[in-house]
Amino acid sequence: MLKTAIIAVALWLCLMALTGCANFFPDDTTTTTLTSSATSATYETSITFTATLSTTLATGTVTFYDGTTSLGTGTVSSGVATLTTAALAIGTHSVTGVYGGDSTYGGSTSVALSIVIDSDLTATSTTLSASVSSGTFGTSLTLTATVSSTSATGNVTFYDGTTILGTSTLSDGVATFTTTTLPVGTNSMKATYVGDSSYATSTSGSITVTIIEASSSIGLAI
């Protein structure tokens, strides 16, 4: 009887392994996506690199590399690690983010970003405006970034604090982004022009947009 029970348990374990027992456990593989606050900049400009992991549960660190040279390490928090540096030399750099893994999740390496540091780039400035300064949750907000040169090309990244809201392409020096998902509270908005082969990166000043909860009222018929 005992032998039969042992055999039955063994067969059940084998069956689970063959038919998806692995799906009971979370996937421990990761991917790492790397973005930067600028793709071209003048020498000694601070550039922020952001590595985003495919899971917010991962812990540990991400090391950022210029080729094979370590630029520094950022601690993972909610699946994101950042590093800000002004140490890139003049020239073209291939930057990657390497997540080292933890006791549960495996490591992964991002696709390389090409960053150009050039002493001859034309300086720019970026200004930011918003279609509204306050509204209820769900209000449509359009952010407009204007770069000082209409000849500048490339993208503008829009931020709420340090959170990336989205990216838009410049057209005649202007880029816009519309959102309805700003959280309730005071939001600090800014825009960063990432630069191109001729024009340097620049970041706007911050503007404040306040979002309040939508009120609801119920009419009582008498």
Rank of each mutant, 00 (worst) to 15 (best):
M189Y: 04
V174F: 00
F177A: 13
D160H: 08
Y193L: 04
G195Y: 05
V194I: 07
G161A: 01
T180G: 07
A175L: 11
T162H: 12
S188E: 14
F158H: 11
S188R: 09
D196M: 04
S171G: 07
I164D: 15
G173K: 03
T169W: 01
N187H: 04
F158S: 13
P183W: 11
V194E: 12
L182W: 10
T181A: 15
Y159C: 07
S168L: 13
T176N: 15
T163Q: 11
T162D: 06
N187V: 01
G185K: 01
Y193P: 00
G173L: 03
L165I: 08
T169Q: 09
T179K: 08
G195W: 02
L182F: 14
T169H: 04
D160I: 08
D172T: 09
A191D: 04
T192V: 05
Y159H: 04
A175Q: 06
L165Y: 05
T181G: 09
Y193G: 04
F158R: 11
P183Y: 13
F158D: 12
G173E: 01
M189I: 12
L182I: 13
T162M: 13
Y159A: 08
T178P: 05
T186I: 06
L170H: 10
D196H: 03
N187T: 00
D160T: 10
S168I: 13
V174W: 01
G195T: 05
V184R: 11
T169P: 00
T162C: 05
G185T: 03
T169C: 05
T180H: 06
G185F: 00
T179Q: 12
K190C: 12
G195V: 05
P183E: 11
S171Q: 08
G173W: 01
V194W: 03
T181I: 09
Y159Q: 07
S188W: 06
D172S: 14
L170D: 10
T179L: 09
V174Q: 02
S168H: 13
I164L: 13
L165C: 06
S168F: 12
V174E: 02
S168V: 13
T186L: 02
F158L: 12
T179E: 14
N187R: 04
T178Y: 00
L170C: 10
L165V: 03
S188I: 02
N187W: 01
N187Y: 01
T181S: 14
T162Y: 02
G166Q: 12
T169D: 08
L182N: 14
L182A: 14
T167Q: 11
D172K: 09
Y193H: 00
P183T: 15
A191V: 02
K190G: 10
L170T: 09
T178F: 01
T180R: 05
Y159P: 06
S171R: 07
D196N: 06
L165D: 07
P183K: 14
D172R: 08
V174R: 00
L170M: 10
T192G: 01
G195R: 06
T178M: 03
G166H: 08
T167V: 09
G173Q: 06
T176H: 14
M189K: 07
G166M: 10
D160R: 15
T178K: 01
D160Q: 15
D196P: 00
A175E: 11
D160E: 15
V194G: 08
T186P: 00
S188P: 05
Y193E: 06
F158Q: 13
L170K: 11
T179Y: 09
L165H: 04
G161W: 01
A175K: 11
F177E: 14
F177S: 13
A191P: 03
L170S: 10
L182T: 13
L170A: 10
T162L: 04
